[in-house]
Design a binder for these strands. Structure first.
Length: 268
DNA sequence: CAATGATCCTGTCCGC
DNA sequence: TGCGGACAGGATCATT
């Protein structure tokens, strides 16, 4: 399924390992709209080495030595695949980053929602939406959630998917977090007790760390930079499951247009 | 400001 | 076998 924080983090680490300090020589757009240029880009953009590899929420930000940055969002089906072969499957390649020799990074994206924005480093913020804290940072704690949820009467499931509340969570991990925290996804965010908030914080960090350690979750499209799947799908407890670990039937409901999986017995 | 719904897009799967 | 429709869903924009 779609890349969320652990998948984006895995891709970022893969890019860092494969590209490292190798110059990026060219960026080609093969699909109208995939590559977007800020009007103030610093010329020349390429060739340029990457001098900082950064992730913010689900965004990958490559800071180039040319004082520009590549802001990449994979959305649902985007993949960044490193290759040195000439005959890679090219059907859904929407953009191409050329490195040295035959080395390239293919931006493969079936549903074409992904984007690569080229903008001056000084204007990165103009191209990012309002993003909440990083869930793995110290600032993401029960105290933060308490105040962030004050006026949020929407279901906790929907609120945790809101990137301006916390950056990087998507449908799969929110389902898993709420299951581990034993919180029913329909509960109004501002009705949660302090102890439930603490549990959500602890489980969020736990699930994300485990998923990163397993190179992310490959339910369908997601792949690492070397085109291999992640392995956290083997550890999912409720997402697309029939039974929870205690043998209860998992219930599937629609919230904000997305499927929520939860255990009506374990999650209150 | 909060919340909801439509939109974008294509591959896959299901029912008839 | 084939076709239409539902579904997958992150982020953005419009609407209430």
């Amino acid at each position: 399924m779609m890349p969320e924080l652990p998948e984006v983090e895995t891709v970022l680490r893969g890019l860092k390992r494969k590209i490292g300090g190798m110059p990026i020589c060219q960026l080609d757009s093969l699909y109208n709209g995939t590559v977007v240029y800020d009007k103030d880009i610093v010329q020349p953009v390429f060739p340029a080495v990457v001098n900082k590899y950064e992730r913010r929420g689900k965004y990958i930000i490559l800071h180039l030595a040319s004082k520009n940055a590549l802001i990449i969002h994979l959305r649902m089906t985007g993949k960044l695949i490193y290759t040195e072969e000439d005959n890679e499957e090219a059907r859904h390649v929407r953009a191409l980053l050329s490195l040295t020799g035959c080395a390239r990074v293919l931006f493969n994206d079936i549903r074409t929602f992904g984007k690569i924005i080229v903008a001056p480093v000084s204007k990165i913020q103009n191209h990012l939406p309002k993003l909440g804290p990083e869930p793995l940072s110290e600032g993401f704690d029960a105290h933060y959630l308490k105040q962030a949820f004050l006026k949020k009467s929407a279901p906790i499931k929907n609120v945790l998917l809101d990137q301006s509340v916390v950056a990087g969570l998507g449908n799969i991990y929110v389902c898993e977090i709420l299951y581990r925290a034993k919180v029913k996804p329909e509960t109004a965010a501002n009705k949660l007790t302090k102890s439930k908030l603490e549990s959500i914080v602890r489980r969020t960090k736990e699930v994300l760390k485990e998923a990163i350690a397993n190179n992310g979750t490959s339910v369908s499209d997601y792949r690492q930079v070397d085109d291999k799947t992640g392995s956290f799908q083997n550890f999912l407890r409720v997402y697309q499951k029939e039974k929870c670990s205690l043998g209860h039937d998992i219930k599937r409901i629609k919230q904000a247009g997305r499927s929520s999986f939860y255990c009506p017995v374990c999650q209150k």
